[in-house]
């Protein structure tokens, strides 16, 4: 076996290979190719409606692609049976754009649900883990509130706490900071960096927030609406310095260039 030139780099956690995504005949994106490495904070960026959420649904096994492959460390996500897919996704955590909390349960019950199912913790310990996760997202004391009783931004943060419930080693966040005030958004960025460093988790983050793209992202992909494919791939800070693509520059400079 020959030594790879990039042997220094961490192992790939998730590889997307010639991926095509469509709703029926309506093609959203085609020919996506990128690799997310262990410990990356990988940003999916692009204009509104370009298909970022849809791409995320494909990556987390909710929507089947119309072509191509999603390869996790453990193997292909789509060319396999239900049980293997479930096993692969057990190590992933997902925050939906809408939060998607279970509306018939309190916040504590929402977060406790996966813990009850997949761990052998005693109810007391579960309560403590739940309290910790809520405190991490700044919602300490809201255990017994129902999702309908808290604000949109709070739902988002509770969804974040739920996504982190099982300490997954790859997390998918759809616009985590949308609806948060600048201070909370900044705290969230710090939380992501902290979790990456302490738990060695990998993050895939859909976001429009330029500040957080540059603050936390070390790899990214830009999805272009017009050409319906990815037009850039790499560290967002480098992209800003080096890219000559006018559409991407326009995006990264808030339309100033």
């Amino acid at each position: 076996m020959t030594l790879q030139p990039e042997a220094q780099e961490p192992a790939p956690r998730l590889t997307v290979d010639h991926l095509d995504i469509a709703y029926g005949d309506f093609v959203i994106m085609r020919d996506l190719n990128f690799t997310i490495r262990r410990g990356d904070i990988f940003i999916i960026m692009g204009g509104s409606g370009c298909g970022k959420s849809t791409l995320m649904r494909v990556l987390v096994g909710l929507k089947s692609p119309s072509g191509g492959e999603v390869l996790y460390e453990e193997g292909s996500l789509w060319r396999t049976d239900e049980d293997t897919r479930a096993a692969i996704l057990r190590r992933a955590g997902v925050l939906f754009q809408s939060g998607a909390l279970f509306s018939s349960m309190t916040l504590a019950e929402n977060i406790a649900l996966p813990l009850q199912q997949y761990t052998r913790l005693r109810p007391r310990d579960i309560r403590e883990v739940v309290a910790l996760k809520l405190a991490l997202v700044g919602l300490a004391g809201f255990e017994d509130f129902y999702p309908s009783e808290i604000s949109g931004g709070m739902c988002k943060r509770a969804g974040l706490a739920r996504a982190m419930a099982l300490d997954p080693d790859i997390l998918f966040f759809d616009e985590p900071s949308a609806g948060l005030d600048p201070v909370s958004a900044n705290l969230l960025d710090e939380l992501i960096l902290e979790l990456r460093d302490s738990l060695k988790a990998t993050f895939v983050v859909v976001t429009h927030e330029l500040a957080s793209i540059f603050a936390i992202g070390n790899n990214s992909v830009y999805l272009d609406v017009e050409t319906r494919t990815m037009t850039a791939h790499g560290d967002p800070k480098k992209l800003l310095e080096e890219s000559t693509d006018p559409v991407l520059r326009h995006f990264l400079t808030r339309g100033k260039e």
Binding site: A86, L89, V94, S98, A100, L101, S103, R162
Partner: peptide, 20 residues
């Protein structure tokens, strides 16, 4: 109505991602 609303809120998708 209950399951339909859960579908609208993506709650059912969330369940799936937890492997339920």
């Amino acid at each position: 109505a209950e399951l339909g609303t859960m579908q609208v809120n993506e709650e059912i998708d969330a369940l799936r991602t937890f492997g339920f």
